[in-house]
Nucleic acid binder design. Structure first.
Lengths: 124, 124
DNA sequence: TGAACATATGAACTAGTGTTCATGTGTTCA
DNA sequence: TGAACACATGAACACTAGTTCATATGTTCA
């Protein structure tokens, strides 16, 4: 017998056709999937999370955030741009200074949900 | 009224000391911060998000998920392990087959919040 | 205008991540 | 028992992402 190499992992899908079709329908489109993944990727960095925590309290300038977190101005500025692109923070200029603040309430809600999950996992 | 801090970036922190102290207190500890970012990092990959979407509908075996998403069994298995380590999915074995399902409700809540943010951003 | 300050940005370096490939583990059944 | 099946896993590879460094942009004030 010759060896057979299947591209697919299994010969057939075991799940019921109805379920497979339902999944296919509910899977988000490529654009939505990209946006969603990109959003969570932004949350997946400790520097950015710490920046968001700072902004939970009050709007703050780049310089102060850097000093507070003990990081360089450049690093913070780069990350603030990422956060801004993801529409998680917004900025306003006042003279030489640029103040950053949270863009909306989703930020805190998402982080709180994450915290809840993390804390529950510890208990169990 | 404003404190002087010896840091590289700016000569002094402009924000009021009360705010600075409040931020310092509310910043999560190193362990929590790590867990939180790690959790979101897991969400920040399109393959993992798609796997979770599949499991929203029904528990499913590795093989079927791979077939449904058009990826190799190995790739899916690796990602399922990541999802399991993050306590986002759980598994049960039935003979040769291993079925994966969602671990709890936070998964869907977090993704829904993310979707809401993404969709709102598009509108504005 | 020019000096000083606050921030932004591009390039480069390093560390980390997802997939593939090959193979190992565990289960079923003839 | 051993062959076939379903899944797990370690190593390697290509690619991505965060920080640093040097420098550019933009604003204020003497």
């Amino acid at each position: 017998m010759e060896d057979r190499y299947n591209v697919e992992c299994c010969d057939f899908i075991h799940a019921h056709e109805a379920v497979v079709e339902k999944v296919r329908q509910k899977l988000p489109g490529e654009d939505t999937l990209y946006d969603l993944t990109e959003l969570f990727r932004i949350f997946g960095d400790s520097t950015r999370i710490r920046i968001l925590y700072v902004l939970f309290e009050e709007e703050m300038c780049v310089c102060d955030i850097a000093a507070l977190l003990g990081m360089t101005q450049s690093a913070i500025s780069h990350q603030l741009r990422a956060l801004k692109n993801a529409r998680l923070v917004k900025s306003r200029r006042d003279g030489k200074t640029v103040f950053y603040s949270l863009a909306d309430d989703h930020v805190k809600t998402i982080i709180d949900q994450g915290l809840e999950h993390v804390n529950e996992s510890v208990i169990s």
